[in-house]
Protein backbone atom coordinates (compact mmCIF):
# COMPACT_ATOMS: atom_id res chain seq x y z
CA UNK A 1 0.00 0.00 0.00
CA UNK A 2 1.37 3.38 -1.00
CA UNK A 3 1.56 6.13 1.61
CA UNK A 4 -1.05 8.12 -0.32
CA UNK A 5 -3.42 5.14 -0.13
CA UNK A 6 -2.69 4.70 3.56
CA UNK A 7 -3.49 8.35 4.19
CA UNK A 8 -6.78 7.93 2.31
CA UNK A 9 -7.69 5.00 4.58
CA UNK A 10 -6.86 7.14 7.61
CA UNK A 11 -8.95 10.05 6.32
CA UNK A 12 -11.94 7.83 5.66
CA UNK A 13 -11.77 5.80 8.82
CA UNK A 14 -10.32 7.85 11.65
CA UNK A 15 -11.71 11.33 12.16
CA UNK A 16 -14.54 12.67 10.03
CA UNK A 17 -14.27 16.34 9.15
CA UNK A 18 -17.79 17.79 9.15
CA UNK A 19 -18.57 20.49 6.61
CA UNK A 20 -20.58 22.56 9.06
CA UNK A 21 -22.73 22.64 12.16
CA UNK A 22 -26.33 23.55 13.03
CA UNK A 23 -28.19 23.85 16.28
CA UNK A 24 -31.07 21.40 16.56
CA UNK A 25 -34.05 22.30 18.74
CA UNK A 26 -37.71 21.52 19.14
CA UNK A 27 -40.55 23.92 19.85
CA UNK A 28 -44.30 23.73 20.22
CA UNK A 29 -46.56 24.84 17.39
CA UNK A 30 -50.31 24.27 17.63
CA UNK A 31 -49.69 21.90 20.56
CA UNK A 32 -47.30 19.80 18.45
CA UNK A 33 -43.54 19.58 18.78
CA UNK A 34 -41.72 20.55 15.61
CA UNK A 35 -38.00 20.27 14.91
CA UNK A 36 -36.04 23.24 13.62
CA UNK A 37 -32.43 24.14 13.03
CA UNK A 38 -30.41 27.30 13.38
CA UNK A 39 -29.14 28.23 10.83
CA UNK A 40 -31.96 26.74 8.74
CA UNK A 41 -31.35 23.73 6.54
CA UNK A 42 -31.33 25.91 3.41
CA UNK A 43 -28.89 28.39 4.93
CA UNK A 44 -25.14 28.02 5.14
CA UNK A 45 -24.07 26.00 8.17
CA UNK A 46 -21.75 27.39 10.85
CA UNK A 47 -18.11 26.43 10.35
CA UNK A 48 -17.35 26.35 14.07
CA UNK A 49 -18.69 23.87 16.60
CA UNK A 50 -17.59 26.26 19.37
CA UNK A 51 -19.88 28.94 17.98
CA UNK A 52 -22.66 26.39 17.43
CA UNK A 53 -22.48 25.10 21.02
CA UNK A 54 -22.39 28.66 22.34
CA UNK A 55 -25.50 29.44 20.29
CA UNK A 56 -27.17 26.29 21.61
CA UNK A 57 -26.42 27.21 25.21
CA UNK A 58 -27.68 30.77 24.78
CA UNK A 59 -30.91 29.51 23.15
CA UNK A 60 -31.37 27.10 26.04
CA UNK A 61 -30.87 29.83 28.61
CA UNK A 62 -33.13 32.29 26.80
CA UNK A 63 -36.04 29.92 26.29
CA UNK A 64 -36.16 27.79 29.40
CA UNK A 65 -39.74 27.00 30.36
CA UNK A 66 -40.70 27.97 33.90
CA UNK A 67 -42.44 24.66 34.53
CA UNK A 68 -42.86 21.48 32.48
CA UNK A 69 -46.56 22.32 32.12
CA UNK A 70 -45.85 25.74 30.66
CA UNK A 71 -44.06 25.03 27.39
CA UNK A 72 -45.25 28.16 25.64
CA UNK A 73 -42.24 29.52 23.76
CA UNK A 74 -39.86 26.97 25.23
CA UNK A 75 -37.11 25.45 23.11
CA UNK A 76 -36.18 21.93 24.13
CA UNK A 77 -33.77 19.17 23.14
CA UNK A 78 -31.16 21.62 22.01
CA UNK A 79 -27.93 20.18 20.66
CA UNK A 80 -25.50 20.58 17.78
CA UNK A 81 -25.64 18.47 14.64
CA UNK A 82 -23.18 18.19 11.77
CA UNK A 83 -23.87 18.61 8.07
CA UNK A 84 -25.34 15.10 7.89
CA UNK A 85 -27.71 15.76 10.79
CA UNK A 86 -25.81 13.54 13.22
CA UNK A 87 -25.45 14.81 16.83
CA UNK A 88 -22.01 16.23 17.55
CA UNK A 89 -20.06 15.69 20.74
CA UNK A 90 -19.65 18.74 22.95
CA UNK A 91 -16.07 19.84 22.35
CA UNK A 92 -15.39 20.46 26.03
CA UNK A 93 -16.44 17.09 27.36
CA UNK A 94 -16.19 14.95 24.20
CA UNK A 95 -19.63 13.61 25.13
CA UNK A 96 -23.07 13.96 23.55
CA UNK A 97 -24.92 16.69 25.42
CA UNK A 98 -28.46 17.98 25.19
CA UNK A 99 -29.64 21.27 26.69
CA UNK A 100 -33.21 21.55 28.01
CA UNK A 101 -33.69 17.83 27.54
CA UNK A 102 -37.31 16.76 27.29
CA UNK A 103 -38.76 13.33 26.46
CA UNK A 104 -41.29 13.89 23.71
Amino acid sequence: MKVVEALKVIDDGWVRKPEGFRVHFQKQENSEWVTEYSPGEKQKALDSDVVAWRLAWKLAEARKSDTPENDDGALVNIYVVDDLGNPTKYYASNQFEVFNRRDI
Binding site: L7, D11, W14, V15, R16, K17, P18, E19, G20, F21, D47, S48, D49
Partner: peptide, 15 residues
Protein backbone atom coordinates in the same frame (compact mmCIF):
# COMPACT_ATOMS: atom_id res chain seq x y z
CA UNK B 1 -4.05 16.12 16.16
CA UNK B 2 -7.68 14.96 16.38
CA UNK B 3 -8.81 18.42 17.47
CA UNK B 4 -7.17 19.96 14.42
CA UNK B 5 -8.34 17.32 11.93
CA UNK B 6 -12.00 17.45 12.96
CA UNK B 7 -12.23 21.22 12.62
CA UNK B 8 -13.92 22.09 9.29
CA UNK B 9 -11.80 25.22 8.86
CA UNK B 10 -8.50 23.35 9.00
CA UNK B 11 -7.23 22.45 5.53
CA UNK B 12 -6.77 18.78 4.65
CA UNK B 13 -3.49 19.57 2.91
CA UNK B 14 -0.95 20.36 4.22
CA UNK B 15 -1.94 17.89 6.91
Amino acid sequence: ETIMIEDPRVKVTPR
